[in-house]
Write a protein that binds this DNA or RNA. Structure first.
Lengths: 350, 350
DNA sequence: CTGAAAGCGCTTACAG
DNA sequence: CTGAAAGCGCTTACAG
């Protein structure tokens, strides 16, 4: 299958290559007859523009990059990345963009690779997952004026564009659900290691406050995202006699459930538990674990859409997109499992 | 950060842009002093070549594509894709190639996207996952003379380059393990839907034959990769009083285990089970499930290496790479879990 | 509404 | 060993 050039298409259609270029790029002010003829020839020949040439000439590639940090061990149990990538590719396809993929596994790879990204004439913009481990990446991107959007709220309130789940809302509706079940002493297995954990905690507090319940610091124990640590701190927590626990991640919830069951307590009768993330591995065989589900695909799509907006208008103010989360109820006694819906929040700060 | 061009680097270093290009591309016959000077300037300026321009001029992009079929539901429980992508990106980084990602979710996306891939001047080659659903893709790739490598053995013995796990070996060592445990009546929950299933079955047969054991067709029941179907056919299988079962996938093994336990039989004492894939979700809380582990990362790397070989030498004979699988033993009674190693097979046919 | 021409930043024969 | 120059296939002011 021969590859045609603009010149050749023009010759066949009896117009100049400039004109062909214009119809391809949907420029206005092309006579209908010419447009039709050119489109026909393109159809017949199966002409596809040469992206490299277009990129060189126009200085835009319609290629977006996705940078994923050195792969974490939880990738093997957490469907986060597949779902995220699914959302991103879907949005890219819709917008007629192509996705390029950067993933590094060693610091050396990261080092070399980052330069390739930052000065990559081929990228119109970049999506960065929040837990990249080389902090200077952000600086370098800004210096190079590469448009980018982060997935996950940045630490230190850096004024960069980002898309995230509404973690505050998640913590709040999780806790509210426990309150609605009539629980009086609601504990929390927290993690304050990142912005998301902090926000989930604030949601927890807000729910208690709204219901005129006191925050008891003894009911909040520090997790670190690991199942084992969660198991240990839950043992401590149980001494405080909680009747409900909000766990900041489903992964930790596995440990929490183990500790609770070993103590001979029933779920949800004695202690109701609400997790976060809706991980299949956690939820499987744990019919009483309600949890907060993040719209990960939507986060991916929103990241693309936001990035496109930024590329379009580089001087736009900081974009902060928060996607709503859902409460997935599995701890009803006899009732149908259900889902609570919420609505999207898009803010533009600055 | 300003982007430099070859011309500018040349001016600073006091040579022509052609010379700069030559040192960047490691051409021989460059005087050491010039090379050093140019390299210095590149270092200082942080010069990065413009990929689009290079691609246009040289007709090669150092970009590889990965095409993943409309995402399957099992993506959410199966770490196959993350691991595969990890292996592929690693090999790409090593070889200084960039990975571009194609994934489609609807037939329309697939349709439009495929054209973009096939006639993509920006791709040096493509890796295709075997279970693409549009069969014509392969034809179109061949017509367009796009170098590509498939992951997974092709059906109908199509003479295309591919990389796969050694499924025959897997079936064989799985069955041999059961024989080594002294089992006499070894059943199989099969799937013959694809080349892999067929090979696993052949491995099963080969192991029996080598041990002078008869193949009893009644001991082979048809699975379809689903847990539910596996559960059902296992109930039938149990009537034949097997004392060992080779299950062609861990996912199905979950159903098999359920059926066996419901029948009041002990694993592995009454019935030993060997699965395939080493899925965390299946293995978790199933201490007695031995399984065959595929080197998925290596398959990804091998796909890249094979593709690079094909790109280098388009007239190379059909590449068929089979990577060894491992038996992961978890059904020893009291002993340490262990792994049996095997060695790689690379064949060149035609 | 359309075309001729310059230019995007590289590579690569061709000369020397 | 090095340089001048053509060319890769597009886009886009500039004229008309």
């Amino acid at each position: 299958m021969k590859r045609f050039t603009l010149e050749e298409i023009g010759k066949i259609a009896g117009v100049s290559r400039a004109t062909v270029s214009r119809v391809i790029n949907n420029h206005p002010n092309i006579s209908d007859s010419v447009r039709r003829r050119v489109l026909e020839v393109i159809e017949e020949t199966g002409y596809q523009p040469n992206i490299a040439a277009r990129t060189l000439a126009s200085n835009q590639s319609r290629i977006l990059g996705l940078m994923i940090p050195a792969i974490l061990s939880n990738v093997f149990t957490n469907p986060y990345y597949p779902r995220l990538i699914q959302g991103i590719t879907h949005a890219c396809n819709e917008a007629n963009y192509t996705l390029t993929f950067f993933m590094f596994q060693t610091p050396e790879e990261q080092q070399v690779g980052t330069s390739r990204i930052v000065n990559n004439a081929l990228l119109d913009g970049l999506i960065v997952n929040a837990d990249y481990n080389e902090n200077s990446l952000i600086e370098r991107l800004m210096k190079a004026r590469m448009p980018f959007v982060q997935i996950g709220k940045p630490i230190d309130d850096m004024p960069i564009h980002y898309v995230d789940a509404d973690n505050f809302l998640g913590g709040k509706i999780a806790t509210q659900h426990l309150i609605d079940m009539g629980r009086q002493r609601i504990g929390q297995v927290a993690t304050a290691k990142n912005a998301a954990g902090e926000e989930r905690n604030e949601g927890y507090m807000a729910a208690l406050e709204e219901n005129d319940m006191e925050v008891d610091e003894n009911l909040i124990v520090p997790g670190d995202f690991s199942e084992h640590q969660a198991y240990r701190v839950t043992k401590d927590l149980l001494k405080q006699k909680p009747d409900g626990i909000f766990v900041q991640s489903d992964w930790m919830a596995i440990g929490v459930i183990r500790a609770v069951q070993e103590a001979g307590l029933r779920i949800p009768d004695d202690i109701a538990i609400v997790g976060f993330d809706d991980l299949p591995i956690a939820v499987r065989d744990k019919p009483h674990l309600s949890t907060i589900r993040q719209p990960i695909e939507s986060i991916g799509s929103a990241a693309v859409e936001t990035l496109l907006r930024v590329i379009e208008n580089p001087d736009i103010g900081q974009q902060q997109v928060k996607l709503p989360v859902e409460l997935v109820i599995r701890d009803t006694c006899g009732g149908e499992p259900g889902i609570e819906e919420n609505t999207e929040t898009v803010e533009e700060a600055s």
